[in-house]
Amino acid sequence: MKTENTVWHEQHISKEQRAALKKQTPCLLWYTGLSGSGKSTVANAVDALLFKLGCHSYLLDGDNVRHGLNGDLGFSDEERIENIRRISEVAKLFIDAGLIVSTAFISPFASDRALAKEKLASGEFIEVFIDTPISICEQRDPKGLYKKARAGEIKDFTGIDSSYDVPQAPQIHVKTAEQSIEQCAQQIVNHLIAQGFIPASCIEQLEG
C-alpha cells in the first residue's frame, strides 16, 4: 500500500547517462519455465558470457532472492504474485542503473510477466522461455521437489497441482532438451547482439 506522504525524487544522473558510461543498452532477460527446466543454469551461463564480453550485468535468481528479500513468502498463488511484483521492482532499479539484468524465476502466471513488462520502457523486457518438457524436468529433479510434490509433501507445485501459463510469444525460445547449455547461452547472447544491446566493440574484443 502506498502512503500519501511520499513524493518521487528526481535524480541528477539519468538511466541513459548510466548506460552510456557502461557502453551498453540496459535490458531485462526474464527467464521463465518449469522447475528443473534449466533457467538458473542457462542464466548463469549467459551471465558468464556477458562478463567475458565486458558487459555490466547481474543475475537475480529465484532461490537466492527467497533467502533474503522474499524470505517471508510461501508458494500460494497470492504469494507467488507478490514474489514477482517485488522482483520486478528490484529489476527495474537495476535497469535504471544501466545494467543487463537476468531474473530466473518460474513466474508461472502470464499476467504477472505482463505486469513486469509494463514497468519497463519499450523493448527493455525480453521474455526467455526455457521450454523443457515436464517429463524431462522430473527426470532431472535436481532438488527432489517433483518427488516430494508427487508424494503430496509439497503443495502448490507448478506443473503438478499449480498451473503454468506457457508463454505465447517469447522473444527468445530455448529448448534445453535439444541443445547444450553452451548452445542455449550463445543463442541468448546472439539475440542481444542482434538487437544492439551489446556494442560491436565488445564482440570484436572477444574475437580478438
Rank of each mutant, 00 (worst) to 15 (best):
F51Y: 15
G208V: 02
P133N: 06
R18I: 01
V166H: 11
I181N: 11
I198A: 03
G123L: 00
Y146R: 05
Y31M: 14
I154D: 06
T25I: 13
G74Q: 09
K2L: 12
R86G: 00
G144D: 11
I134Q: 13
T158H: 09
A104S: 15
G62Y: 02
F75E: 05
S102Y: 04
E4N: 14
L206I: 10
D96C: 03
H12M: 11
Q171A: 12
P108F: 09
I188E: 11
Q171M: 11
D112W: 04
E153S: 07
T32I: 02
R85N: 09
F51E: 13
S37E: 06
P133S: 07
H56W: 15
G196D: 04
E127F: 05
E82K: 15
S135Y: 04
Q11V: 04
K52I: 03
G62K: 07
K147A: 15
F129M: 04
F51I: 13
K92D: 06
I87Y: 01
W30T: 05
K52L: 07
V90F: 02
Q168H: 09
V101G: 00
G208W: 08
G68E: 06
I181E: 09
H9T: 12
Q11N: 09
A91V: 04
A48P: 08
G38C: 13
D131K: 14
A116L: 03
Q24K: 01
K92S: 03
D72T: 13
L21Y: 10
D141T: 03
C202I: 03
A200G: 07
V128W: 01
P167C: 10
R18T: 01
I81K: 14
A121H: 12
A104K: 00
D131S: 12
I100L: 07
W8L: 12
P142G: 04
M1D: 13
V189G: 10
S35F: 03
C27D: 06
W8T: 13
I100Y: 08
I188M: 05
C55A: 15
H191N: 11
L93G: 04
G159F: 02
T32S: 15
E138C: 04
S57I: 04
H12I: 14
G123D: 15
G208A: 11
C202Y: 14
S88H: 03
T6V: 14
C184P: 05
K143V: 05
D165W: 11
N83C: 07
